[in-house]
């Protein structure tokens, strides 16, 4: 096992702070929030991805790693040590999927979608992007949105707009997305409905 790099210095406080940003973002879909992630995980796991995992994953909430993350054993060691979470091989077994390369993100229906009676039994897909700003490339309506909210984000998964539409069409089933960029966080819960045009 490689030497472990730093997790949260003050786990209770930092986990609460990270969760609170995520809770706010999840309740205000497609709005961008500052997100401080004071951890130094092994690359290519970004500090933001690591901070989400350290805040919310544990032995009851397994993690799936995309191939670039899974290729680095130190990342699984780091996450196991700091969270106790099981690292699962199948995306639909994960509570949290960590995606470092959004361009190669599996189609969203590969993750757990929840059941009609238990739509909460679904994966939260966490994507590390390069840039994330308020904007108009992707625009949404729905619960939590005062009128319309929009994002400019890159790079995005293949056919992302269509993927979001099919995911929303499954409501109340479907996955929830967390978008991260250096120092930033936004969320796209399944309830957010993408809109076209003005």
């Amino acid at each position: 096992m490689s030497p472990l790099t730093r997790g949260f210095a003050e786990p209770a406080r930092e986990a609460q702070a990270a969760f609170r940003v995520l809770m706010t973002a999840m309740s205000r879909p497609a709005t961008v929030h500052p997100f401080a992630a004071a951890v130094t995980p092994p690359p290519p796991l970004s500090p933001e991805l690591a901070a989400i995992a350290l805040s919310l994953a544990d032995p009851d909430a397994p993690i799936w790693l995309d191939p670039p993350l899974a290729a680095v054993p130190a990342i699984a060691d780091y996450l196991r040590f700091h969270t106790g979470a099981k690292i699962v091989g199948r995306p639909d077994e994960a509570a949290f999927a960590l995606v470092s390369n959004p361009l190669a993100c599996p189609y969203l229906d590969r993750f757990a979608q929840g059941l009609d009676a238990y739509p909460d039994r679904s994966t939260t897909v966490v994507l590390a992007l390069a840039t994330l700003d308020a904007g108009s490339a992707l625009r949404f309506r729905g619960p939590g949105i005062d009128g319309v909210a929009g994002l400019d984000a890159a790079p995005l998964p293949r056919a992302f707009a269509a993927e979001l539409d099919s995911n929303h069409a499954l409501f109340p089933r479907g996955v929830d997305l967390v978008l991260l960029a250096p120092g930033r966080l936004a969320a796209l819960p399944r309830s957010a409905r993408r809109i076209e045009g003005a």
Binding site: P11, A12, A15, Q16, F19, L22, M23, M26, S27, S55, L56, A57, D58, D60, A61, A95, Y118, P119, D120, S122, T124, P143, G144, F171, P172, D176, P189, R190, S191
Partner: peptide, 24 residues
Amino acid sequence: DEQTKRMIRRAILKAIAIPGYQVP
């Protein structure tokens, strides 16, 4: 304890994503 908080926090996030649905 932190593990209980994480469990409740995960439930809260699901609850927000599915408005009005009761998360066990």
